[in-house]
Simulated scan of single mutants.
Amino acid sequence: MGILPRFDGEEAKKPNPGARQQVPVEVVVQRAVERLELPTPVIRTSPDEDFAQVVHVPTWMWVERSTWGPVSASAAVDGVKVTATARPQRAVWLIGEGGTVVCRGPGTPYSDANSPKAPSPDCGYTYRRASLSAPDRAFTVSVRVTWDVEWHGAGQVGVVPGLVMTGQRQLVVDEVQTVVRR
């Protein structure tokens, strides 16, 4: 290794052209985040999404459990290794008739232990109008799941916020009318 003069009276070491520069940790974090395979959220409802929802009857909404949970991936470049773990934070539902619902978790699947008239304890909506005038006579319902990624590696930690995965489907909403005979 040669010596280079410096102006402060000290001698500086000449860089070795064969020596590798360490990769910045941000580059490895980006690679680890790119390797995350975040699932597309699968929409579930009660009444079942394959049947009509009913005006003024609570609709329970949830994201299928297999699409809600931590996902991890790692990347290593030139000895710098980073592990990234994404966790879903919230689900924002666009209901189709103009409403929006924000749920802090995946929602609760409906069970027969609940009354059909009971609203969901954490993620539901009650339609006010039928979807008859909507395209294909159905509302487009979408859910945007926001994920935050925590990473660690090379003696550092950090967060990459706000990755989003979206799912959607059509929901028919019908109005039930009662006929009273005398």
Rank of each mutant, 00 (worst) to 15 (best):
R87Y: 10
R129D: 08
Q22M: 11
P47F: 01
F51A: 11
A118G: 03
V160G: 00
D136G: 12
V77K: 03
G99Q: 04
R144K: 13
L36I: 10
E64H: 14
T40E: 15
E64Q: 14
M165I: 08
R137E: 13
A91K: 01
R31V: 01
Q21Y: 07
V80N: 02
V29Y: 02
Q89C: 12
R137I: 01
V157H: 13
V149D: 00
V173Y: 01
R181C: 05
A12I: 07
K14G: 04
V102W: 02
Y125D: 07
L38H: 13
G155Y: 04
L171S: 10
Y110S: 02
R35H: 14
D112R: 15
L163C: 09
D50W: 09
A32W: 03
K81P: 00
H152N: 11
V25P: 05
V176A: 14
A19W: 06
D48T: 11
V180I: 15
G167W: 03
G167E: 07
V101Y: 01
R144I: 11
G99L: 07
V33E: 05
G2K: 07
G107D: 04
V71F: 06
D50P: 01
P15C: 04
R181L: 15
D78W: 06
G9M: 08
Q89A: 09
V164P: 03
V82Q: 06
S120P: 06
V33H: 08
T178P: 02
V55E: 02
Q170F: 12
V145A: 06
S131I: 02
G155T: 12
G158V: 05
P109S: 09
